Amino acid sequence: MPRPRTVVTAPRGELSLAERALNTAEEREALAARRRPPAEPPAWLIERGIGVDRLPVRVHSGGCWDARKRCTGMIIDEARRALAEGVQGCPHCRPDAALGIG
C-alpha cells in the first residue's frame, strides 16, 4: 500500500512541472507580442456625434491631429461615400482635397 505522503507528493511534483511549462509558454507569448510591430492606423476616419443616434459629423484623414475619441476607421470608398452624402470634411486635414472631392 502506498504511503499517504507519496500519494500527495507525486501529484504536487507533476503540478509544479506543468505550472513551470505554462509560465514559460506565457513568457514566450508576451515576448512575441512585444516584438510585433504596432497595427497600422486606418487611412480614413469617421467622427460620430454624441447621443443615441451617433450620426457621422466629420471625415478625417488617418493621421489628423484633430481626430477625437469618437472616430473609427473606414476604407477609402466609405470616406468618399460619406463626403458625397454631405458629411463634412475636417478643415484641418482636408480629406475632401486628398480624395479629389469638392
Rank of each mutant, 00 (worst) to 15 (best):
S61I: 05
A98K: 06
I101T: 07
G89C: 13
W44H: 09
I50W: 04
R58Q: 10
C93K: 04
L45S: 09
A39G: 13
D66M: 13
R70H: 11
R94V: 09
G62I: 10
P56Y: 05
D77Y: 02
H60T: 10
L45R: 09
G89Y: 02
R36Y: 06
P91H: 12
G51D: 00
H92M: 11
C90T: 05
P41I: 12
H92Y: 15
R80G: 08
P91W: 08
D96A: 14
P38R: 11
D96Y: 01
Q88I: 00
G49Q: 04
G62V: 08
P38W: 13
I101F: 03
G102Q: 09
W44P: 00
R80T: 04
G51S: 00
P38G: 11
I101G: 03
L45I: 10
L45E: 09
V59K: 00
D66V: 09
K69P: 03
R58H: 02
P91S: 08
C64Y: 04
A98S: 14
A79K: 00
G100C: 14
A84M: 11
L55C: 01
G62S: 11
D77N: 10
P56V: 05
D66S: 13
R54L: 02
L83K: 13
P56S: 05
E85Y: 02
G100Q: 06
G89H: 03
V87L: 05
L83D: 09
R34C: 15
V57Q: 06
H92G: 03
A39S: 12
V52R: 01
L45F: 12
V59P: 01
G49C: 07
L83F: 12
D77G: 04
G62K: 05
G49V: 04
E78R: 12
V87N: 01
G86P: 11
A97D: 06
P41H: 10
G86T: 07
D66K: 08
C71S: 09
D77T: 14
L45K: 06
G89I: 02
R68Q: 14
L83E: 14
I101A: 03
R70Q: 15
G49P: 05
Q88N: 13
L55G: 00
V57C: 06
E78C: 03
R54T: 01
C71K: 02
R81G: 02
R94P: 05
G73H: 12
L83H: 09
V57R: 07
D66Y: 13
W65V: 11
R36F: 08
I76M: 13
L83A: 09
G100A: 08
D96E: 13
D53S: 03
A82C: 07
I50F: 05
V87K: 00
A67S: 14
G63W: 15
R68I: 04
